[in-house]
Simulated assay, not measured.
Amino acid sequence: MVNGPNLGRLGVREPDVYGRQDLATLRKDCVAWGQTLGLEVEVRQSDDEAEVIGWMHQAVDEKTPVVMNPAAFTHYSYGLADAAHMVTDAGLPLMEVHISNPSARDQFRRHSVISPVVTGTITGLGFFGYRLALEAVAHLIQQ
């Protein structure tokens, strides 16, 4: 599970938009949800675009499905979009998650360079969206 910029500030940054739970809670929840689905889940977060791109390359090399919240990188990171495309080109599930609904927010958030290359997108459901994304990954790898 890969999370982009500012998600390390969950619980502090705009709690009315992102909720009051923090990244440690998200980590704990996602690991538990993964266990119930037979998935080993590692939750990563970085404000560094190059590091996030490197994690996508690692997923391709290790043949690991990905749940990704690209956060602000959603709107402008063509480098991350290219790396995401490599994940799906490798035949791996890549689920995009957003805690809020970007389409219901600022105009600039309504454009995504990531969504066109992912397997599926879940938005606006808070942390529950991550659970749904993990369920989608489990379903897709069982097929």
Rank of each mutant, 00 (worst) to 15 (best):
N69C: 08
N6R: 01
K63I: 00
V87S: 03
L23G: 07
V41L: 09
G120K: 03
A84D: 08
E62A: 13
A24M: 10
N101A: 01
E14Y: 13
S112M: 05
A136Q: 14
G34A: 03
V117Q: 05
A59M: 02
P116N: 03
P65W: 09
V137G: 06
A84K: 06
A24E: 12
F108T: 05
H85G: 14
L132E: 08
G126F: 00
R110H: 13
Q143R: 15
N101P: 12
A81D: 11
V117I: 15
G126I: 10
E135G: 11
L23K: 11
S100E: 04
V2C: 15
V118C: 15
S112K: 05
P65K: 03
T119I: 14
L125K: 08
R109P: 01
G11Y: 00
S46N: 08
N101R: 11
P102A: 01
Q35L: 00
F128M: 10
P102E: 03
L134E: 11
V97C: 08
S112A: 06
V67C: 00
H139F: 14
D48C: 15
M1W: 07
D106M: 09
D22G: 13
T74E: 02
V67I: 07
N6H: 02
L37W: 00
A71Q: 02
D22F: 06
M68F: 12
D29W: 14
G120A: 15
V41N: 05
R27H: 15
V118E: 10
L39S: 00
H85K: 15
V113R: 13
G91V: 14
G38L: 00
V97I: 14
Q45P: 07
P65L: 00
A72W: 02
L92A: 14
N3E: 07
Q21C: 03
Y18S: 12
Y76K: 00
V60A: 07
G129K: 01
Q107D: 15
L26K: 04
V60R: 09
Y130K: 06
L39D: 06
E96I: 09
V43H: 10
D48L: 13
I99F: 06
V2N: 14
L80W: 10
G11P: 11
N101L: 11
G38S: 00
H98V: 01
L7S: 01
G4Q: 01
A81C: 14
M56V: 12
Y18E: 08
E40L: 13
G19S: 11
P116L: 09
V2H: 10
S112V: 02
R110Y: 04
G120R: 07
V67T: 04
L132P: 11
R105Y: 01
A81V: 08
V113Q: 12
V52S: 06
W55Y: 08
Y76M: 10
G120C: 02
